[in-house]
Nucleic acid binder design. Sequence first.
RNA 1: GCUCGAGUGGCGGAAUUGGUAGACGCGCUGGAUUCAAAAUCCAGUUCUUUCGGGAGUGUGGGUUCGAUUCCCACCUCGAGUACCA
Length: 1009
Amino acid sequence: MGKYHFNEIEAKWQKHWAEKQTFKAENKSDKPKYYVLDMFPYPSGAGLHVGHPLGYIASDIYARYKRHQGYNVLHPQGYDSFGLPAEQYAIQTGQHPAKTTEENIARYREQLDKIGFSFDWSREVRTSNPEYYKWTQWIFIQLFESWYDKDADKARSIEELRAIFSSEGNVHVNAVCDEGTAHFTASEWLDFSETKKQEILLKYRLTYLAETEVNWCPQLGTVLANDEIVNGVSERGGYPVVRKKMKQWSMRITAYAQRLLDRLDKIDWPQPLKDSQTNWIGRSKGASVKFRVISYELGVGETSSHIPHRSSLEIEVFTTRPDTIFGVSFMVLAPEHDLVSKITTAEQKEAVGKYVEATAKRSERERMADVKSITGVFTGAYAEHPFTKKPIPIWIGDYVLAGYGTGAVMSVPCGDQRDYDFAKHFNLPIPNIFKDADISEEAYSDKENTIIANSDFLNGLNYAEATDKIIAALEEKGIGKGKINYRLRDAVFSRQRYWGEPFPIYYKDGMPQIIPTECLPLRLPEVEKYLPTEEGEPPLGRADVWAWNTETNEVVSNDLIDHKTVFPLELNTMPGWAGSSWYFFRYMEDAKRDEVFASKEALNYWKNVDLYIGGSEHATGHLLYSRFWVKFMHDRGLVPVDEPFKKLINQGMILGESAFVNRITAGYNKGDTYYVFQSSVPILISDSFIDKSLKHIHNIDKDSNSKTYNIILQKFIELNPDFKNQEIEFSYTPFHVDLALINETKNELDIETFKNWREEYKNAEFITEEDGSFKVSREVEKMSKSKYNVVNPDDICEQYGADTLRMYEMFLGPLEQAKPWNTAGITGVHGFLKKLWKLYHSGENESFYVSEEAASKDSLKTLHKTIKKVQEDIENFSFNTSVSSFMIAVNELSAQKCNSHEVLEPLAILISPYAPHIAEELWEKLGHSESISTASFPKFEEKYLVESTKEYPISFNGKMRFTLELPLDISKEEIESAVMAHEKTAQYLEGRTPKKVIIVPGKIVNIVG
RNA sequence: GCUCGAGUGGCGGAAUUGGUAGACGCGCUGGAUUCAAAAUCCAGUUCUUUCGGGAGUGUGGGUUCGAUUCCCACCUCGAGUACCA
């Protein structure tokens, strides 16, 4: 076999690795461990395109490199297999999502196998497998059975909380819990009914059921989390989202806000990703202040028994500028604020009611799109300024968000632009409390360079001093305190979908009860349709057998529900992020998956993921939720680590180069009307006729581009003989064509195939180049089926081989950057692998040949400089540059006619992380019977790189003019005299005397003057 | 608006702490081989030029003997975020 038969070689080694389980990781090893993980894919029906494996190739190179370095490497893969697309498909076709998911996984696996990844498939996970989601449900139960102790700053068991309640009530409990949880004593607790106790405990549980305002997506029939909404519409499908109150499971992630923030410093993640988590958590420091309502009347419809005591009504606000409290001239409540109905006066009742109703109707999207118009209504009520005792009017306005802070603000128009705009709009006073600040045009929001004035005891202080002093004053009066507020909300955990994990929950007296852990998994029931029920219940409402028998501990028919021993089960399912928040631990376990989510030994051996590679789109979803769950699991002693991913890298997206054909459209003016004239057959024009400078307006310029115009006109008249109007104008419309119809290197359309592509182009006319070819335009876009620009890795493997695909993906550019895919460029990398193969096949008829003779000095130099470079590159995740280094090495070794075993054997190891198949084949030919995968990485030796001379660049005023070879061991003076003696020096000096000569030995000579 | 990132040939991109800008590959041009094509190999390829040279890393300044690299201002593009009090 002389030629490089990549298809045979790759099939051979893929089979070999699978049979020998070459990449199986051991849970017991003397070697140091290393855990390399990819974000596992959602197996979609479309299969993989070349963009998907980019990160997998990078992590595979790293994993293979670490094996060469002597590590015991865990490099698993699996599927995030619950999710919306499978369910949407099920709704359309009636096929069970489990079936389509299974098929998609099979296809993914086939595609992945062809690329030669070193995955340990024996540890595969699928989040939709009952044996997996059993443990997702189990972790949910652990969350349900936990509360957050702020004093200990960790989660603790609910049993401990019950004990505290029994002995001392909840007065001294410093826990993260629902707002306004009432106080009770131990004896009160003991007297509560079990249902009442459950109701109270629910306010403390880390996952709890509550009536919350959610993002409801009617088209998808489900609620969405904040991170699943992009620009006010659903991330999947782009459907509108409205606000709606629903009883939902939530996760008390806010308990972890500070820890999630603090620990960001300790993990090696890209800064932009840390920044977006920081912004998402949104910590702001300030104070909470209570304002007493001093004037109100009874709201309409309220009975006298509901009259609040005059002094009991308070509005609590959160402010980051308590130092500006003397600048408060009004207050604004969110329209949804609880107090609105209680404080509104009779005169204002109608206006307020209308306004509240109008805002409730507006969708989130409308509200976001319309941030400029200022709206609001006066409630008629006043609050008392806590220091000046002056009355302050209370307004409502939708610029105040119900979900942030307390849903109420103290408005300081001189210091906050939104308050300023509101005040201007409604003619409210704008008192100035800043020394020498001009607030005639806009608010003065600079807090660093400000001195407070007109503020009683705060006068003359700067921001920091005033803040400290006012907080002290507020605390002394008992009407406020320093406070830290977070933007992060508790995460809604319910989805009204079928294809997700069922909650291990049934309802007794309206209170959620967990099913015993030994009964898990609670399997998804069968339903005859995957749509919500007519009553608007989630799809699980259609299941006939979906009730829990507490005596037999099994799922039974709904007919048996008696609310005594048989109870209805929860109808919601868990969101997509449930299964992905802990899967990295599951891979660690290889033997006892039935007994534990992961065993202590496995967890203690593998600890956390050393390297995680995936897309940045998960910044505030998966990557935040995982950190939250891991912290929780750590608190409860379930795992030994409190961060899941030590180092993280975001791979950039691979974009497609879409191809466009331009279609001519004609039109003319007649009177004031513009008529569009449809040609009887489509006229298509080659790209080179199109004036790029006019491209954006899509017009064909009649005057300056008369040649093109006349060609089109001629064609047009020929095809439309009845057309008479001579004042016709032409423009063009580009449309996508399938890449399969394009010659990639020449950007030419295959006209014949194209005609058969779509019925409408069967008789199309082409305005071609002189040689009869037809050029298409190209544009870089996201790869997608609808743009016909998807490149399938299978096709590339078939035509060039997996090793070529792997190296080319790396060669495209830096891993973290987005970059376009162009199949035309792949020949360079493919040619390189052929050249590499040839290096080992210098025998007769290109037969394998390596000599045992000592290598030349040059070859050793080439080898060692490549070892150095490639090792540095891998460690810096700069894979694109090491591909160039390999090319340089092979070019040099070919030129040197190197065939020495001494050089070619280490070279095979060097390249094996990148091109593992060819490396294995060459390794075998070099006489090895064991896989190359654990051969130790070649050791770099400086001595082969030591030079005795240097080609000095000689610069004049910083410009390099010529080079001069000089020995490295001579002194500065000797260098200078050698340079000054050189004939070219005199030439460049043109008779001037140099002012200065800079000599950096081994680097450069620069002559100034 | 705010935050972050990026601007280098026809294209993807290199240049590790300031020290020969354009490595490597694509494409293109010419040549060899071939009946021809593919494949392979060789030479050239930033722009400009009166062939001496000159200019050149988004723009304008600055620091430096020397700047793609550091500093300031601006322009353009991309990503994220968005009334967060």
